[in-house]
Write a protein that binds this DNA or RNA. Structure first.
Length: 651
RNA sequence: GCUGGCGUAGCUCAGUCGGCAGAGCAGGUGAUUUGUAAUCACCAGGUCGUGGGUUCGAGUCCCACCGCCAGCUCCA
């Protein structure tokens, strides 16, 4: 017997191996709540596992019934859609020609990795497959779960020429675990579930949207299967919302906007993944970097500069030559000595720390640098500014005593969150990664460090997930992701303990006891990479950056040529106040000039004609607010200066 | 790197069955002097990614290479 505590209903005892379907059947007469929801129940959550109505329940625990309203129920729908797609493929291209790989769910839908003998799937096939899927859905097959003995399962899938499934049974399912298959009509698939009750468990909405290569089991060298992607939601509305988001993402693509607004280029003559900052992009970057430096100095960091290359021995000591080499540009030989371009800044900062003997009194030492590093990335992974081969880390290393760890970590995290908020990001995802199996450093250090990280997150009041064993071999870490305007998450800040480099470089300080002590060392970055962060900013704001970052803050638009002298007078006054302004002197109509300024995402348009000339004013228009009315030059100047000073997101 | 798709004017893109290389925008010149998202006319602009091949003839078909895009893998 097993004991199940059904949320909101009560505690019950059942036969071992009972299914959810049977439970509902048994309880519905006595429990109105279940009866009412009977048709709505898609599955349940047993502890942390999502189960369907078909699966025998063999352990006791908390059971939460899932209806379409629960987000977790999507998991079940999406999983089934992967099966329905597989069935569609088999019906279209022949049962024995289609070899199935794996078909899991994703954040927004599902995919199935398949190999279709004698056929390469293309985008044009997607509508055809969709049609077939709809047909299967309308047939409304019962979905049936069965368990097979291992040998029988292997034979069954061998007969069906499902070589990949056979491999899964042989290598990935541990002996003794039940081998389950799900049937719907003629279609049978190896699967542990969960699945919806029938294929026609409508209403739901889905769409196939992409097709791409994927290695079997994600391993290079294995055969490449074709991965067909789908999106799925219960409601049509949700699906549309997601498809709109994709459209919106396309519009905001920083590579497109970067080109249109002349912010940066990546030139094939220079090389992939190596960005050239155009003057306008350089203004954005300079504003960010200047602010970054000021904020660091304010918080007791010391700025340093280090070279772009260093001798081989340094990278030997740091361990990079042995453990990071595949990400480094190849060695160069200079006068019989090997040199490497730096993939990280840490060894240099360590050498700066070691440039003289340190006393416990001067700790913490916080060395900060906008350090440009170069890493070899395979050509296929490069992506605009988000993934490059040369990038600038907003790097710092905090070297401190054990008694300072808690406070320093808390300060770093507060600093990071405060900074990200300043740029308009409000939602964060925080991950705490703990000690992996293979690691260096003693237990005590791991404990002190991990606790410090946890306490910091809690004191800042953020929710967080723990990635158990997900830390680097050299120390635990916190990662912070930010949510952009259309809901995507981006990795930014990282705070990482390092128990490895202090050992390797024999870093120490002289303590109160006049003895040598090993300091704690913390790597941290707020933006992660300046390039990526600016890429994210561009997409977050769709190019319409906050005033203080805008390359051109105001464009003055004379209505006719006669107003150019006055426009230049306005320009002069605003420039003297430190604003980045320009006059549109072209012989074009005002409407055209406004349109072009809008397309260039210039925050302010200052229209000047006879009226403004006579009264010493400007007519202010912004993208966000439209026509804001007439301001005197001084009024506008003060308003803009104040917003810039405050780094306001307003106009 | 791998799989697939795509490379035509500065940009965005058309180019049918292999038969004289096109449009819009941007740029130049001129006209016009304009009140909150595109004034008009004219001009200039091309080794059709690169190199080979098939053909009387290649932007178009074939091969190799380079680059870009999506995904895999990896990651700041």
């Amino acid at each position: 017997m097993i004991k199940l505590n059904i949320e909101g209903i009560g505690e019950f005892e059942f036969e071992d191996g009972i299914t959810l379907k049977e439970i509902i059947e048994a309880l519905k007469e006595d429990h109105k709540k279940i009866k009412k929801q009977e048709k709505e129940i898609v599955g349940a959550k047993l502890g942390d596992d999502i189960i369907d109505v078909h699966t025998p329940i063999r352990k006791s625990g908390n059971l939460k019934l899932l209806t379409k309203k629960d987000k977790d129920s999507l998991e079940i729908l999406r999983h089934s859609l992967a099966h329905i797609m597989a069935q569609a493929l088999k019906e279209l291209y022949g049962d024995k020609n289609v070899h199935l790989g794996i078909g899991p769910t994703t954040e927004v839908g599902f995919f199935y990795d398949v190999e279709v003998e004698g056929k390469r799937l293309t985008e044009e096939d997607l509508p055809i497959i969709e049609e077939k899927m709809k047909e299967i859905i309308s047939r409304n097959y019962d979905i049936v779960r069965e368990e097979l003995p291992r040998e029988e399962a292997i034979k069954f899938f061998e007969d069906k020429k499902e070589f990949y499934k056979v491999e899964l049974i042989k290598h990935d399912i541990p002996e003794g675990e039940p081998i389950s298959v799900y049937k719907q009509g003629e279609f049978v698939d190896l699967c542990r579930g969960p699945h919806i009750p029938t294929t026609g468990y409508a209403p739901f909405a889905f769409k196939l949207f992409n097709i791409a290569g994927a290695y079997w089991k994600g391993k290079e060298g294995n055969p490449m299967l074709q991965r067909v992607y789908g999106v799925a939601f219960w409601a049509e509305k949700e699906l549309k919302k997601y498809l709109n988001m994709l459209e919106e993402a396309k519009k905001r693509d920083h590579r497109k906007i970067g080109k249109e607004l002349e912010l940066f280029i990546i030139d094939e003559d220079v090389g992939g993944g190596l960005a050239l900052w155009l003057p306008k992009g350089a203004i954005i970057r300079n504003e960010i970097e200047t602010d970054w430096k000021n904020e660091h100095i304010k918080r007791g960091y010391q700025l340093v500069y280090t070279p772009h290359v260093g001798k081989e021995g340094l990278w030997q000591t740091s361990g990079h030559v042995n453990f990071y080499r595949e990400n480094m540009f190849p060695e160069m030989q200079i006068e019989e000595e090997g040199y490497f371009v730096k993939p990280m800044n840490c060894p240099f900062h360590v050498e700066i720390y070691k440039s003289r003997q340190r006393s416990y009194k001067e700790l913490p030492i916080k060395l900060a640098e906008l350090g440009t590093v170069y890493r070899y990335e395979r050509s296929g992974v490069l992506h605009g500014l988000m993934r490059v081969r040369g990038f600038t880390q907003d790097d710092a290393h905090i070297i401190c005593r054990e008694d300072q760890v808690d406070e320093e970590i808390r300060k770093v995290l507060e600093f990071a969150i405060e900074t990200l908020k300043k740029y308009g990001f409000e939602e964060f995802q925080v991950f705490l990664s703990t000690r992996p199996e293979k690691s260096v450093g003693d237990d005590r250090m791991w404990e002190v460090a991990t606790n410090a990280l946890r306490k910091a997150i809690e004191s800042v009041g953020l929710e967080y997930d723990i990635d158990e064993g997900g830390g680097a071999f050299y120390g635990p870490k916190i990662d912070v992701k930010i949510k952009d305007a259309i809901g995507r998450m981006w990795q930014c800040s990282t705070i990482q303990f390092d128990f490895n480099l202090p050992e390797r470089f024999d870093m120490y300080y002289i303590g109160e006891d006049n003895k040598r002590h090993r300091p704690y060392m913390i790597h941290r970055a707020i933006f992660g990479s300046i390039e990526r962060f600016i890429g994210v900013l561009i997409e977050h704001y769709a190019g319409l950056l906050p005033l203080w970052l805008a390359p051109i803050q105001a464009r003055i638009i004379p209505i006719a040529d006669a107003h150019i002298p006055y426009a230049k007078e306005v320009e002069q006054k605003l420039k003297e106040a430190g604003l980045r302004v320009e006059v549109d002197e072209r012989n074009e109509r005002m409407n055209k000039k406004i349109r072009d300024a809008e397309l260039q995402k210039i925050p302010y348009m200052l229209v000047v004609g006879d009226k403004e000339w006579q009264t010493g004013t400007v007519s202010v228009r912004t993208k966000k607010k439209g026509n804001m009315g007439v301001f005197t030059i001084d009024e506008f100047k003060e308003r803009a200066k104040k917003l810039i000073e405050e780094k306001s997101l307003e106009l």
